[in-house]
Write a protein that binds this DNA or RNA. Structure first.
Lengths: 191, 191
DNA sequence: TCAAATGTGTTGGATATACGACAAATCCAA
DNA sequence: TTGGATTTGTCGTATATCCAACACATTTGA
């Protein structure tokens, strides 16, 4: 809608920084990566880093959000309906993302990563619910979106701790517990 | 020596433009490539193109020079001696370069490309001769460097028209004709 | 042939990035 | 523990890039 195109210099520089960060993450642990490392790898000035990010934790946030967002957006969930297939695909994206992270070195930042994943999920669910029920008050969608995101993330934690089946099978069993609470009628009641 | 490091923004932008140009060259003929095409592909502003290049022919010059220079520099000829091995390797680099160009579409610009190759050769030979005979007047090296470059380029034309043997074999036979005229003693006599 | 569309080259003002410097914080070896 | 070395954030100034607009040239299609 209000697509205000951003300066290409900003897009380029953000990508340079994030790509360098991801590249370095495959070689070092997060705690050993300095901002100087990143800017040297990206061939940009250190001051420019601070033009885009507050500090290295801010970068971690935004870089991981970006990666997860790209993973989730390749099917444009924000414009699709909420049903079993959608939830299965999103769940698969989350577990894929977490497995790709376990190959990189972010030990000690598991809870940060958890928060990032859940926040992204909340954004996606909020948009999906908004598309599905455009005549509802947007405020009323925040609570169900949050609960859905917590629920699905919690399921991913369960699966990681005890991966008895494939992610797809695993979440199909769990969907009734999640979805039961947030169908259309319930949201209307909340409102 | 006087290595004044250039602004990283300039290096980045030049690379973006040249890479986009080379990419487009593999899809279209040169005459069909517009500056707008290039800047769109490179995601840079069209005005920025003119900050770096006079026009599209200037870009053709510099892009091809750059590619050939990279090909030739991987062995740092400028710091090595002039002997049979060196000449063979350089000749191979030229024929490789020409064959890579024939896959791209630069029909009608063969003589421009010829000039670019020869000029690069002249630069390389000038440096090599300078290293080999540092006590000679630099001016005296210009003529032999030019003659060597014309000679080797001419040999590449001959080979392309009639590739009876491999480039390596071909140039080994021709080297006596080229090198005979520009050995150390002859340069001193010219001087 | 003409008119519309597209590409070229240039300009002025706005903005992002580079660079060097700085004090403060953190790291690390002696 | 100390002291040097590295990293972090921040700043002011210089410069590269963006953007919109312009006149002009070239291409295209009816």
């Amino acid at each position: 809608m209000t697509e205000t195109k951003t300066d290409p210099r900003i897009l380029r520089t953000r990508k340079l920084i994030m790509d360098s960060f991801i590249e370095l993450s495959s070689k070092k642990e997060f705690k050993d990566i300095t901002i100087k490392d990143i800017t040297t790898e990206a061939m940009i000035n250190r001051a420019t880093f601070y033009y885009h990010f507050e500090d290295i934790y801010d970068l971690l946030d935004k870089a991981l959000s970006e990666v997860l967002f790209v993973n989730l957006s390749c099917q444009d969930f924000a414009n699709s309906k909420m049903n079993e297939d959608t939830l299965v695909t999103i769940f698969k994206a989350i577990t894929d993302f977490q497995m790709s992270l376990s190959n990189r070195c972010h030990r000690g930042y598991e809870d940060t990563i958890a928060r990032i994943i859940r926040e992204q999920l909340e954004v996606i669910f909020y948009k999906m619910l908004g598309n599905q029920q455009p005549n509802l008050d947007k405020e009323a969608l925040k609570l169900p979106a949050a609960m859905l995101s917590w629920g699905l993330y919690g399921a991913s934690v369960e699966w990681r701790n005890n991966p008895t089946t494939s992610p797809e099978e695993f979440i199909k069993v769990a969907i009734p517990y999640i979805q039961g609470g947030v169908n259309e009628n319930n949201i209307k009641n909340i409102n």
